[in-house]
Every structure is written in C-alpha cells, then in structure tokens.
C-alpha cells in the first residue's frame, strides 16, 4: 500500500516522534547509564537484558578474621586466592529482587540506596557500615566473558559512584572501606 505523510497534525506529531526519538535514545541512554531496553527507543537486544543477577551487593563482616565478604547470591561460599578472604551470602527477598532489577535497568542513585536499605533491613547491617552495589554489564571478548561494573559505595544513605571498570571481587573489595575506618 502506498504511504503518504498524514495531513492531520496530531498524527504528524506521532510520525515525528517515531522518526526522531529512537536516534536520540541511541545516544542518550548510554550517556545516562540507562539500559537500551527502556524508554521506547527499540533498543531491545542491542545490549544484554537488564537482570537482577547483574547487580550484586557486597558488604564486610568485620567480626570475622580475615573479614568476611558477603555478596547477595543466596548461594554457596567461595574460597578465593590463597585463603585471603571468603564470601558468604546475603540473600534477597522478592522485593529486593525487584529493586535489583530496577537498579540494573536505570542505575539511579535512588534505586541503589533503596536496594542498600533493603539489604540492611534483611540482614541487620548498620547504616554506617559501607556496602558496595555493583551493576555489571556482561561482555565477551574472544573466548573470555567478563563484566564491566559501575560500583556505588553506600553508607548512611549516601552513595559514591565509581565509574565503569572490569569487575572482580578483588576490585570491589578495594573500593569498600576496610574494617576500622573509611579509606
């Protein structure tokens, strides 16, 4: 069927939005740290689906020696490198899962703080104990899968964002203030 521009102004406005918004979206969303899967720019499948598994929360339990690092996968613990530290688990409830998914989508400080508060409430972590919230973006180069992560260090409802870097637990550990005082 032949297609001609509509004369109705309202419909013309809709055509303009359909034409102009997606290119703007393609440039704007990465700059804002927002997933391309959001806000109607048709960027689905252009980048990985934002998932709650892309968000981990890491805290430090200073009652153990060496200090135990917790992360929220609700699963097994690991031994990493010559006994330098172990990881435990900070499982999330369904509300926490929803918050983690929201953080993965928009990377907004308000959502990060809400997630940190949820973790603190679930696991009785003091508000002044720092938590690291890492939002990972999976990548594959050759044979190797890895992730870039934006890490927020949250304490007392205040978040400091550290920019994208290759994500490792050692790297997150380095950003999290050590036991006994801030870095």
């Amino acid at each position: 069927m032949p297609m001609r521009p509509p004369a109705d102004r309202f419909l013309l406005f809709i055509v303009a939005v359909l034409l102009l918004w997606p290119p703007v979206h393609a440039l704007l969303m990465p700059a804002l740290g927002v997933s391309t899967w959001r806000f109607g720019g048709w960027g689905m499948y252009a980048t990985p689906v934002p998932r709650r598994s892309h968000v981990i929360v890491v805290g430090r339990d200073c009652g153990f020696s060496p200090p135990l690092l917790h992360r929220n996968d609700g699963a097994r613990g690991l031994v990493l490198g010559a006994g330098s530290f172990r990881t435990g688990a900070l499982p999330l409830d369904p509300t926490g899962h929803d918050l983690a998914r929201d953080v993965a989508s928009l990377r907004r400080e308000t959502d990060v703080l809400a997630l940190a508060r949820r973790v603190r409430g679930l696991h009785r972590v003091d508000s002044d104990e720092p938590l690291a919230v890492a939002i990972v973006q999976p990548r594959i180069r050759g044979d190797v899968a890895f992730a870039h992560a934006a890490v927020f260090v949250v304490s007392a409802d205040f978040a400091v964002e550290h920019g994208l870097r290759v994500s490792t637990l050692a790297g997150i550990d380095a950003l999290l203030p050590s036991c006994g005082g801030a870095q």
Partner: peptide, 22 residues
C-alpha cells in the same frame, strides 16, 4: 491506518539501527 503501519515498520528499522549502533 497508515501511521499504525508506519509505527511497526519504524520499530523494526530502528531496532536494527540500535543493534548496529551498540
């Protein structure tokens, strides 16, 4: 009727563009 059809075509097209851009 035409704008509805155009809307679907634009979704397809820009979905391809987004995949190329990223």
């Amino acid at each position: 009727h035409a704008v509805l059809r155009f809307a679907l075509l634009s979704v397809f097209f820009y979905s391809g563009i987004q995949k190329l851009v990223h």
